[in-house]
Write a protein that binds this DNA or RNA. Structure first.
Lengths: 192, 192
DNA sequence: CTGGTTTTGTAATGAACAGTCAATTTGAGG
DNA sequence: CCTCAAATTGACTGTTCATTACAAAACCAG
């Protein structure tokens, strides 16, 4: 290695993520990325090849970094239903927060914007969804062992149902108020 | 009126809708719209002012035309749970269809792409969501009268829960297979 | 048939787009 | 303290973007 990079690639990807997250893929320009990352145009392209490749890197980092945070919520202390409620309520809080307004979940945004047109993005999104589903399934199985969730029900099916509800909140969160969303969370937990 | 329009405005909006629906707002170019609608650039801009205004018109038409179809499913013959299942399964069918691939629901797509950045689009999306929610609420109240759905539960809350699940399917539909989605529909109906 | 108003088609606008390049700087290895 | 591969810089590419200008064409009212 001759000359070391002046920047931390992870920081740069985080900055790019902020841009893509706020505006979506198509509406984010190379200029936006240059501004946010602080890199020069040349450096950015030298290091990441293209806008598309940088977005792919962004999705990868979202998977490892942000998805892990969601999983941690489920693995925290407390009963399984409590943990699941905490997860869903964290989504409600995010969606109703003033700032950043309605940025939602990057994986969901990418799924809606690019599914069917960008196979690589779709794959990465699938990975995110799968990780959360698996964590939900583990939490539900724990709840079944502890007698908080009916043991005769299929844990995988319940996990998928809960995941579905969580992503529903990402959609309704764009227009619904906190009360409504909280009511939905109550209904979901009642169904477990 | 001096010279009559050569085109049917509704047909043109439908064509524009197809373009926006397939690619999203930002990724659809004026050129795409010209191709799809068959109009000349001049005519298109003369009649619809701007890409943004045409999109707004598109959302309005989606609300009156497509949302009505969803509502019709709920008002069809059969028990309330049957009708709700039919609605959710129509979403599953659309999401797993080969063609058009993963175009989803235009209102959901617009919500995810533009919420927080385009107040007019957000308002229109809210209107769509509200109409479906109201129709669900009516169906659920009917089900409660007929004894198919527990009468002690809040119909509005159940409608919002069901709406949430429906839009969850729009998200998971991008990566999940038909079996999984159908399983989720089963879980949702079990919760009513 | 004619006047007046609107629609239409085409060409042109400047801005913004993603991506490239050659020149320059840098610092780790020898 | 060189050498040289890699990183940086910022100007530059050609393309595509949304939108407009303008003149020709079309049609209804009188």
């Amino acid at each position: 290695m001759a000359r070391p990079k002046k920047f931390d690639p992870e920081h740069v990807v985080d900055a790019a993520m902020a841009a893509f997250w706020a505006k979506g893929y198509a509406a984010t320009s190379a200029e936006d990325l240059v501004e946010r990352t602080g890199l020069g145009r040349g450096s950015l392209y030298h290091a990441f090849t293209s806008k598309r490749a940088l977005f792919q890197e962004t999705l990868r980092r979202y998977d490892t970094h942000w998805t892990a945070r969601r999983v941690e919520i489920l693995e925290g202390p407390g009963s399984a239903p409590e943990r699941i409620r905490a997860l869903l309520m964290s989504v409600v809080e995010e969606e109703t927060a003033e700032r950043p307004a309605h940025r939602g979940c990057l994986a969901v945004n990418a799924a809606i914007e690019l599914a069917g047109r960008d196979p690589d993005a779709t794959d990465q999104v699938r990975r995110v969804f799968q990780r959360v589903e698996d964590a939900l399934c583990a939490a539900i199985q724990r709840g079944q062992r502890d007698g908080e969730i009916a043991a005769d029900r299929d844990a995988r099916a319940l996990a998928q149902f809960t995941l579905n509800s969580m992503y529903g909140l990402r959609v309704l969160g764009k227009t619904a108020d906190r009360r409504t969303l909280t009511g939905i969370v109550d209904s979901v937990l009642r169904a477990l």
